[in-house]
Nucleic acid binder design. Structure first.
Lengths: 107, 107
DNA sequence: ACGAACGGTAAGTTACGACTTACGGGCCTG
DNA sequence: CAGGCCCGTAAGTCGTAACTTACCGTTCGT
């Protein structure tokens, strides 16, 4: 189980710092220190966020000398997107029939 | 400003109880007590969540006798959906070019 | 008009996540 | 091999969101 989906996706992206990290990694792979340099939080904080994302399978890391380069996992990203999309499709399909009806009861 | 977007959408739907409320309201308009009956939280808790959703403009309330019926606002829902979608389009467009490239290092 | 149903709000508690500092362990370079 | 980056983890602090109980106003029924 590479993608341990203990967190509900909303929890993963609910944190602004985590969204910022994902956004940075979307542009290009980065090392922990590089990420921390671009963000208003300390390096250990970045490490902790990366751990969460890694446990969720959203990112993969690869040692490069003394550094550790993180990059997004496209498959996991799409999976997460689908997961959140499911909520919307379910919800919107639910209230679709309510939008149609103005205020008419047709028994 | 009906739709005060102080919360980032992620904050709004980040809470499971709030998502449950939205899901219920998507099926049909409900009163506070009815919502509380279907959820594992107390009625005041539901009221507080509804206040958050109302401040965000996601729901509208209408007094009906001694009760108060809440329903989703379609426009605000679509707006919120677009807001979250923006994150994805920006992110995915960002890492699109990374997916294409195999593993090319150009020092 | 009295009482009960219904719901909003205040006050207070609690759990948890995000962040910090401190420390220790690999991995290159001189 | 000694020293310096780079990073992960432990330990601890702190803020805050999500609850609860308690109370009060409003509305309908009899």
């Amino acid at each position: 189980m590479a993608t341990n989906q203990a967190a509900t996706g909303w929890d993963l992206l609910g944190d602004p710092s985590r969204r910022a990290i994902v956004a940075r990694l979307a542009e290009r792979p980065l090392a922990v220190g590089e990420l921390a340099a671009e963000l208003p939080i300390s390096r250990p904080a970045v490490s902790q966020h990366l751990k969460v994302l890694k446990d969720a399978g959203l990112v993969v890391d690869e040692p490069s000398g003394t550094r550790r380069v993180y990059r997004l996992d496209p498959i996991a990203m799409n999976a997460l997107r689908d997961q959140l999309e499911t909520f919307w499709t379910r919800t919107l399909s639910g209230y679709q029939h309510l939008v149609e009806q103005p205020s008419e009861e047709t028994p």
